[in-house]
Simulated scan of single mutants.
Amino acid sequence: MSKNIKILITTGIYPPDIGGPAQYAKNLSEEFKKRGNAVKILHYKTEKKLPTGIRHFLYFFRVLFSLAEVDLVIALDTFSVGLPAVAAARLLGKKIIVRIGGDFLWESYVERTGNLIALKEFYERKIGLSAKEKIIYSATKFVLNNCSALVFSTDWQKSIWEKAYQIRPGRSYIVENFYGEKITDFEPKEKNFIWAGRPLKLKNLEILKAAFIEAAKENREIKLEIFTDLPYQELIKKLQNCYGVILPSISEVSPNFILDAIATNKPFILTKETGFYEKMKDIGIFVDPHNREDIKNKILFLADDRNWQEYKKRVADFKFVHSWQEITDEFINIYQKLCQVVEI
């Protein structure tokens, strides 16, 4: 674009914190800075220790006092930072793009109730929400109705949300996740399947463990390794040396764990309730997350040497790259469209 812009990126976590939004904020800000733009990162500090509501109130004022000369705000979630950031940006008439990374309402409901309902079904059925969840729903509606633009990582989630929240046409965009270049991988020394992530109920760990126990009765070579809160570089090393990756969550929007598996050329088993299905249906193995027998059978299928070789080749041949330069270009294009709308 012709002139440099001043950008505020709001995020709940930032390195050395571990998690997708932390890396997203860091890499996006670095790319914006390379182009001569001024970027400030505003992440949770004291807010992490405060209860919901109070932390939103404090963060709102931190955002408000950071907006004076800002041209664009980019919020990396809808509730923790999205709600106070949108409120502050609207008050001062600033443009704000909200990136939808997951679904906090659905995650909260599944964690509270233990009802392992898929994301799409959650919005198709009339689900009884708690008082807190009703607040989250209303806050999400406020954010969606008052931000300048919305960014989704997959068309799958975009379609679900547009219907569920009645999002006005033309306000939603897709900016896919970062797909990096291939990373060196090594021949596995054992048939170890890796699962990594937060141990939430929606991750379906109990069904996975039960399915693996059943599969191991038929193939004693296989083993399941579960990792939580593993530093990113350590996870990459694990992936480079592992046999395969498994993630049979109730739903997954666009899991970076699978993208890291692809970068290291590792075959993967993934829930079919995902935004990745259409893009990856020919290179991955997909399972019904509620069907323990299906998960067991797919584990045994991949444990077969010939099947493993076939799917390793498919993953290795997947060369799609989506760089931080391209991601930044897409955010800039959205910002330019917002400026044109104002001018018109």
Results as ranks from 00 to 15, higher is better:
114 G>W: 03
261 A>Q: 04
159 S>H: 11
111 E>L: 07
303 A>N: 10
206 E>C: 06
132 K>P: 02
341 V>D: 14
228 T>R: 01
90 R>M: 01
329 D>I: 03
107 E>Y: 09
97 I>W: 04
338 L>C: 09
189 K>W: 09
265 N>S: 11
282 D>C: 01
326 E>D: 13
121 E>M: 03
39 V>A: 13
262 I>E: 05
277 Y>N: 03
11 T>Q: 02
18 I>C: 05
217 K>Q: 13
73 V>R: 03
218 E>A: 09
272 K>C: 10
215 A>V: 09
148 S>L: 07
63 V>W: 02
60 F>S: 05
255 P>N: 00
158 K>R: 15
224 L>W: 08
10 T>S: 07
305 D>R: 12
131 A>H: 07
308 W>L: 08
27 N>W: 08
288 D>P: 11
249 S>Y: 10
8 L>A: 04
1 M>D: 13
340 Q>W: 12
109 Y>Q: 03
133 E>A: 00
160 I>R: 00
68 A>R: 15
29 S>H: 06
8 L>D: 01
158 K>I: 08
281 K>R: 15
87 A>C: 14
28 L>Y: 06
106 W>N: 01
182 K>T: 12
264 T>Y: 08
69 E>D: 15
192 N>S: 14
83 L>I: 06
112 R>P: 09
206 E>N: 13
286 F>H: 09
332 I>R: 08
108 S>L: 05
121 E>C: 05
251 S>R: 01
227 F>H: 12
112 R>H: 14
28 L>Q: 07
247 L>Q: 07
108 S>H: 15
89 A>T: 06
313 K>S: 08
94 K>E: 00
180 G>V: 14
155 D>L: 08
158 K>A: 14
215 A>I: 09
96 I>N: 00
195 W>H: 12
251 S>F: 04
231 P>Y: 03
300 L>C: 04
96 I>M: 02
35 R>A: 09
54 I>K: 03
134 K>E: 13
45 K>G: 02
237 K>N: 13
312 K>L: 06
22 A>F: 04
102 G>I: 04
131 A>W: 12
38 A>S: 15
226 I>E: 11
142 F>A: 06
259 L>F: 07
274 T>E: 11
182 K>L: 12
151 V>L: 05
141 K>S: 11
248 P>E: 03
144 L>Q: 11
237 K>P: 06
291 N>T: 10
157 Q>L: 10
251 S>W: 02
343 E>R: 12
221 E>A: 04
329 D>Q: 00
201 K>A: 12
254 S>W: 06
181 E>D: 15
326 E>N: 13
14 Y>N: 02
309 Q>Y: 13
342 V>A: 12
45 K>V: 00
45 K>P: 01
37 N>F: 11
318 F>M: 02
284 G>S: 13
47 E>I: 01
